[in-house]
Simulated assay, not measured.
Amino acid sequence: MPIDAEKALAAEPRTSRIGWDHKDVQLYHLGIGAGTRPGLADPAVDPGELRYTLESRLQVLPSFATVAGAGTGMAGLASPGIDVDLAAVLHGGQSVRVHRPIPVKGDAVQTSEVAAVYDKGKAAVLVLRTEAADDDGPLWTNDSEIFVRGEGGFGGERGPSGRTPRPATAPDQVVERPVRPDQALLYRLSGDWNPLHADPGFAALAGFDRPILHGLCTYGITLKAVTDTLLDGDASRIRSYRARFAGVVFPGETLRIRMWTATAGNEVRVEVTAAERNDAVVLGDTSVTHS
Results as ranks from 00 to 15, higher is better:
K7N: 06
P13F: 00
H22S: 14
Q26A: 11
L30V: 15
L30G: 11
D42V: 14
L50D: 14
E55I: 13
S56A: 15
L58P: 05
V60L: 01
L61H: 02
T66M: 05
A70V: 14
A75R: 14
G76L: 01
L77H: 07
A78P: 01
S79W: 04
L86Q: 07
H99R: 13
A108C: 01
Q110L: 15
E113N: 04
A116D: 12
K120T: 11
G121T: 11
A124N: 03
A124Y: 04
L128K: 10
L128D: 07
R129F: 00
D135W: 00
D135I: 01
N142Q: 15
S144L: 13
R149V: 12
R149K: 15
F154P: 08
G156L: 03
E157L: 12
R158S: 15
S161T: 14
P171T: 09
V174Q: 01
P181H: 09
L185T: 08
Y187L: 03
L189C: 00
N194Q: 09
G201N: 14
F202R: 04
A204P: 03
A204Y: 02
L223I: 08
A225E: 09
A225F: 06
D234P: 04
I238Y: 08
S240H: 02
R242G: 15
G247H: 03
V248C: 08
V249W: 04
R256I: 02
R256M: 00
M259H: 06
A262N: 15
A262P: 04
E267G: 02
V270G: 07
A274D: 13
A274W: 05
V282Y: 07
H290R: 00
